[in-house]
Design a binder for these strands. Structure first.
Lengths: 150, 150
DNA sequence: CGTAGAATCCGAATTAACTTCGGAATCCGG
DNA sequence: CCGGATTCCGAAGTTAATTCGGATTCTACG
């Protein structure tokens, strides 16, 4: 993980389709060297994948919310079962498992408020282990693409 | 946005480096057609970008937390200034602007607990508009890669 | 220092993919 | 049924990815 590797990670976080040649030229190294570096970064688990990002509104899911959830009892079995349940819900796009008062923070993307209401009332509150739910609508969600080393 | 477009978005969300030829073959269309479809999806804003994903632990930021923040007064000027401040913090990887009791949910990735403590005490609580902070450590964060239409 | 071994890097050649574009096919409104 | 517009295809040309043998650099140890 030298300066070259960091630069490559940064460039690929910014644009996952930037060509190998282009990056090699930007860094002043040979394309074959650049390719080998990136292969090593993948192999070693620094780069975990490449993904396209889709506009949520464009695919009919323009409303986002975060739902704080408390489950009882907060045992491993209950937590893991509830997490598996969340993962299978198509409305869920991200799950935080937390310390503190709430056990989960569930990030959902839905069609509209009716859809959101249905998710909370018809899916979440159907679960007997669910002890408490607080839903907040998301006005805006910013996600940083480039994340540098500490 | 027909069935072909949805399939392409799904495939590229899963693997942003999947080749055009490969996807064309999987869908039974010509590579040139496939390319044109993807160009149109980008042009129309459905596909917003391609990004590499890096392992946070591998880049020395293995500890995540979500910080619920309330600012006073919750005016546009204050909210926007605080958001701009958050965006400039390198520890912040994602920001939710919310309805409800808290105004922001700040997702941070830091080196260790000392680093987290420093972020909260030395950066956030330095801001005079900050009225309330609650920090929760993240045990686990799952992010769905493939997000289908509603 | 000097050296041997390992790791890294390079560059040319091969392979594969992207991209363009003219023409055929299809769709759709009148 | 017809005309126009859109979409789709496939071949050709361009560019990029990938491989690999040799040269260079680094490193540990005598």
């Amino acid at each position: 993980m030298d300066e070259l590797d960091s630069a490559l990670v940064r460039m690929l976080q910014e644009d996952g389709r930037r060509t190998n040649r282009d990056m090699a030229q930007a860094l002043g190294i040979a394309p074959s060297t650049c390719l080998e570096r990136i292969r090593a970064l993948r192999q070693s688990g620094v780069l975990t994948g490449f993904h396209a990002e889709a506009d949520l509104a464009a695919i009919g899911r323009g409303l986002q919310a975060v739902i704080a959830v408390r489950v009882r009892p907060p045992t491993r079995a209950v937590i893991e079962a509830f997490q598996a349940f969340l993962e299978r819900m198509p409305e869920v796009i991200s799950i935080f498992v937390l310390t503190g008062n709430d056990d989960f923070l569930v990030h959902v993307a839905v069609r509209d408020t009716d859809h959101l209401h249905a998710v909370v009332l018809d899916k979440l509150t159907k679960r007997p282990e669910l002890a408490d739910v607080r839903t907040s609508v998301v006005y805006n969600h910013l996600r940083k693409k480039v994340i540098g080393p500490a």
